[in-house]
Design a protein around this nucleic acid. Structure first.
Lengths: 246, 246
DNA sequence: TCCGAAAGTTGAACACGTTCAAATCGGAGA
DNA sequence: TCTCCGATTTGAACGTGTTCAACTTTCGGA
């Protein structure tokens, strides 16, 4: 769903090594690291963020508390591992959707729906997560420098979506649409997190309504009458989020 | 600026008494309570949220730690006192603006600008505050039941603004505009909190650009060509935030 | 084979938010 | 004045995230 940190926060001593190809690394340290991550993810999922103590994570992974802090600078850092796990899952599900040839709206709906489904089992946890991600300067903040990579990865999904659509639209809007969709998704995540209807039904209803509306607006951007609306909107966006900036 | 909790969180033993007319209450308990609040506000402002410990607050107020917890269920509860202080200040500044007879846009700009000014000295603190307010279920969350009152207070400002404007607009939009403005303000707060430009210049620039744009959109809502845009937008809003619900 | 440095690991210790049983206070009624 | 009883206050104690000095393991090179 969302799109938060991806890069390693360079404070950990194991960070540099870890940065280049962690998957291939089978050294002792990497094994320990992964054991900790696995325990953290499982326990977060089972008991939530607060109730899962660092001592419990360490014990479950079969290491000492101090050892966990050798690999992760803080409990919050383990949260971004949890987030990464889900983002990978979302990415995998999104791939075939992008390949499919349906309309912009249908594919956007599908992408958003998959995001909701991936996160659904962790709705309660996500509530805490958003609290951590919302604070500026936090490495998991979607606006932080640390998550530039993740942000670009997320917008690149929308980029591919937009590039592969034949829907006619204002060319300037087209250039910015991926970022706009990313922003919209961010808003949706916030909404979803606060949605207490069973199964987050209301969020799904919002998607089903909002996406066609968006499609309509995008299509309308070509019309002369809507030109000032589009142009001024894009000018505003340029101030809010200059194109050059990541 | 924002619009978060206002009501007492009923868990404190002193809550019921406090609820009815705290201003007039000069009992010992109320004096203690106010001493704690005053210390908390001052220390939060001076050193930020994390660095201000409950022990420091209690010591500064001349009471024991346990005593602070007799009046406030958690450190976070003191944050909402800080928020309330600033909201009162904002409200006071907004009053003359509402009374003034300038255009919708000018007054909206002024309201938002005053909010930014009131909060400006506490930009760093607000970053933490938003992290607390963003987590669902938190009493300071702008969407929580506890902050219904504060939410209505905030929307009532925009209600008065809208009611007293002669700008022609779609009547259905008019009915919903206060809530839309409240949502927009919420977004602005999030943006402001993450704005690291000196003096949060960029946020101010966004306001100066966004408000006329909004005014333009509101005016356009009367035109026939924009009817579907307006109608569908309002339908979407009705799903996102049903009118009946606070 | 041995050495030394780097990587990895440990658990006690610290500071913090929070809880709670017990002590104290203050005023209404006898 | 004395006696309760609820309101208020206390500080020690608990559980938590985090730090750190010391220890152990690993491994490349002499």
């Amino acid at each position: 769903m969302g799109s938060v940190t991806h890069t390693d926060n360079g404070s950990s001593p194991a960070a540099e090594q870890a940065a280049r190809g962690r998957a291939a690394d089978t050294s002792r340290g990497e094994q320990t690291r992964q054991a900790i991550v696995a325990s953290a993810i499982r326990l977060f999922g089972e008991a939530g963020y607060e109730k899962t103590t660092m001592r419990a994570i360490a014990a479950d992974a079969g290491v000492s508390v101090g050892n966990a802090y050798y690999y992760f600078p803080a409990k919050e850092a383990l949260v971004s591992e949890f987030y990464l796990e889900l983002q990978r899952e979302h990415l995998a599900r999104v791939e075939p959707i992008l390949a499919g040839g349906t309309s912009l709206g249908d594919r956007l709906s599908a992408i958003l729906r998959e995001g909701i489904d991936v996160w659904a089992p962790h709705h309660a946890f996500a509530g805490r997560f958003i609290g951590i991600a919302a604070v500026p300067g936090s490495p998991v903040s979607p606006f932080s420098a640390e998550s530039t990579q993740a942000r670009e990865l997320a917008t690149s999904i929308f980029q591919r979506l937009v590039d592969s659509t034949e829907t006619k639209m204002d060319p300037q809007l087209r250039a910015r649409l991926p970022q706009l969709l990313w922003l919209a998704q961010l808003g949706l995540v916030v909404y979803w997190v606060h949605d207490t209807t069973p199964g987050q039904r209301r969020t799904k209803a919002v998607v089903e309504l909002a996406v066609p509306y968006l499609e309509y607006l995008v299509g309308a951007s070509r019309m002369k009458i809507f030109r000032p609306l589009t142009t001024r909107g894009l000018t505003l966006l340029e101030t809010v989020w200059p194109h050059a900036a990541g």
